[in-house]
């Protein structure tokens, strides 16, 4: 039933420093095709930076990134980012474009669809997130939850092989979190390869196939949700879990 041409993603020995500040110190991560990995950890542990390195919004100092088993560091970063959709904490919808144009924009410019084709496709994507009827309005008139669902539709419209979620529900009022999480859960179930940086432990535990605990720029523990949540091995993870659960 999967409608995605979803791919595997792998990061090998990723290092990144901003000046003397070593943000990522040898990260290894493998997300098999059609699975969801949650990345959890305290603020400043390098989770969001890891996402940005894996789609090369930030170039790593060292290491390799593989999509579908092939290194992508030599490709054009713009090409890579077309294959990886990204959803942000602050939605980052284009405020001067309508909801429909937000989704259609990259379809026209990058996927080179005609204006009509792009609009039809945008409406179809908006329909999937339940917001087709909002296509003509500006994002500012939508609630945070609706805006985030538009952002998800905008990313999915590019037919990505992998989806990144960077604390996609952190900026939402509590009652709006559910709708966005439901959408992300559906996507995971449909076999989209996903890397989800999140503070939603329920999602990590119940939806993802793999949980990655980061602290201080390294992966401290990595395993199945059961393993990490019921039998944490390190003091750092134990402390973190007792703080957030």
């Amino acid at each position: 039933m999967s409608e995605f041409k979803s791919g595997s993603l792998e990061a090998k020995e990723i290092h990144l420093a901003f000046g003397s500040n070593k943000v990522l110190r040898g990260i290894n991560l493998a997300v098999p095709e059609g699975t969801a990995a949650s990345v959890i950890g305290p603020s400043g542990s390098g989770k969001s930076t890891l996402l940005r390195v894996m789609n090369r919004l930030i170039e790593p100092d060292q290491g390799d990134i593989l999509l579908d088993g092939r290194s992508v560091l030599k490709d054009s970063p713009d090409e890579l980012r077309r294959r990886i959709g990204m959803v942000f904490q602050q939605f980052n919808l284009f405020p001067h474009k309508t909801v429909g144009e937000n989704v259609a924009f990259a379809l026209r410019r990058l996927r080179k669809l005609s204006r009509d084709e792009a609009w039809t496709e945008a409406l179809a994507q908006l329909d999937k997130v339940g917001l087709k009827h909002k296509a003509e309005v500006r994002p500012a008139t939508l609630s945070g939850g609706q805006q985030q669902r538009v952002a998800i539709a905008r990313a999915l419209a590019m037919q990505p092989e992998v989806m990144f979620f960077d604390e996609a529900t952190s900026a939402l009022d509590p009652e709006l979190v559910k709708g966005v999480l439901a959408l992300m859960t559906d996507l995971a179930k449909e076999g989209m390869t996903m890397v989800v940086v999140t503070h939603e432990m329920g999602f990590s535990r119940n939806v993802s196939n793999q949980v990655v605990f980061m602290d201080g720029g390294v992966v401290v523990e990595n395993g199945s949700p059961d393993q990490l949540f019921t039998d944490p091995q390190t003091d750092r993870l134990k402390t973190f879990l007792s703080d957030v659960l």
Binding site: G130, T141, S143, G144, D186
Partner: peptide, 20 residues
């Protein structure tokens, strides 16, 4: 922005429908 009043989120209505 010629702002209309933001409507309450009708997320609840599409939960479970979501991507389906």
């Amino acid at each position: 922005g010629g702002k209309q009043k933001a409507e309450p989120d009708e997320a609840a209505a599409v939960i479970g429908k979501g991507a389906h």
